[in-house]
Design a protein around this nucleic acid. Structure first.
Lengths: 157, 157
DNA sequence: CCTCCTGTTGCAAATGATATTCAGTTAGAC
DNA sequence: GTCTAACTGAATATCATTTGCAACAGGAGG
């Protein structure tokens, strides 16, 4: 299983950077992995707190997510208002996101051309890209359908 | 001058939405326009506070920037950590940004293809786009040059 | 010009995400 | 096992942003 492989690499990363191997850190990875592709830290903290045996405090979750970002297994993918939505990337290829501003649904998509453009633009400006983020905010098909429903109800079916 | 035109349109916008025409709001627009293309609110607040005659409180600046966003003259273009960088768009066509993570320099660029992709991807997902934001984080040419200088100095010129 | 109602302002306090401090606890090198 | 540096949890601090509220000011109608 590739989660195990990831953990082993993370362990090596920790060792190489003078960090210690603690149970909590690996339990947090398990939680993130089983939570779903996208998460917010406060959400994760609440979820963990609700479990039978709480494995880590708020501070530890924040600290571990930061480590995972440095390691490269977690990425900040959406910044909306004061919310930060993270993604457990774990080897997934880079991709972008459509965000429904009505229901919060997140749709992933990949367009190779975007990477090509990034390279072209950066070269033009002699700029060395480290990472990028493309967020498209809008209304998803479900929410559009719902609005249509509501309109019908208002008019009187 | 097109700033005047913008103000007139904003005045109409305010009237249409049941808001009042106050001196402060227009003075804030002047400040934003003379500040430069990109600004952060706290920065703007401090700058305004340092003027001979302080024209608006922190809350009013925040509230006015929000109105200007609804109106469409101001846009959140970069979210980095807990910082939000705004742009005074005022009719400028949509474009994207390169952000130097060393010195904070912001470089604007436009690629029509990005708009085309957005439309294509959104169509595929039956998603109605409202706005988007592409941020490319990296190191600008100046900072790369500076690093090169430092390396030379360390080695001993 | 006066009056009244509603939106606006400034301040202080609240909020919410995230960072930090510190004292007690552990990992893991020797 | 011993020792030290890194880690943890709880409380506290910080920083951007929002909100409650009392005083104030547009602007519509007279």
């Amino acid at each position: 299983m590739q989660l195990e492989e990831l953990k082993q690499k993370f362990e090596k990363f920790l060792r190489q950077n003078g960090h210690k191997i603690t149970k909590g850190r690996f339990e947090i990875i398990d939680k993130i992995a089983s939570y779903g592709p996208h998460f917010e830290i406060e959400e994760l903290v609440r979820w963990i707190a609700n479990q039978d045996r709480s494995i880590a405090s708020r501070s530890t979750v924040y600290r571990t997510v930061r480590l995972l970002q440095e390691f490269g297994a977690v990425r900040e993918v959406i910044k909306l208002g004061n919310r930060t939505i993270y993604e457990f990337t774990a080897g997934k290829p880079h991709h972008e996101h459509l965000i429904c501003v009505e229901c919060g649904k997140i749709i992933e998509f990949y367009k190779e051309e975007i990477e090509e453009f990034q390279d072209k633009v950066c070269e033009e400006h002699n700029f060395t890209p480290l990472n990028h983020r493309l967020e498209i905010f809008g209304i998803c098909s479900d929410c559009k359908a719902k609005k249509y429903e509501n309109r019908r109800l208002e008019v009187g079916a």
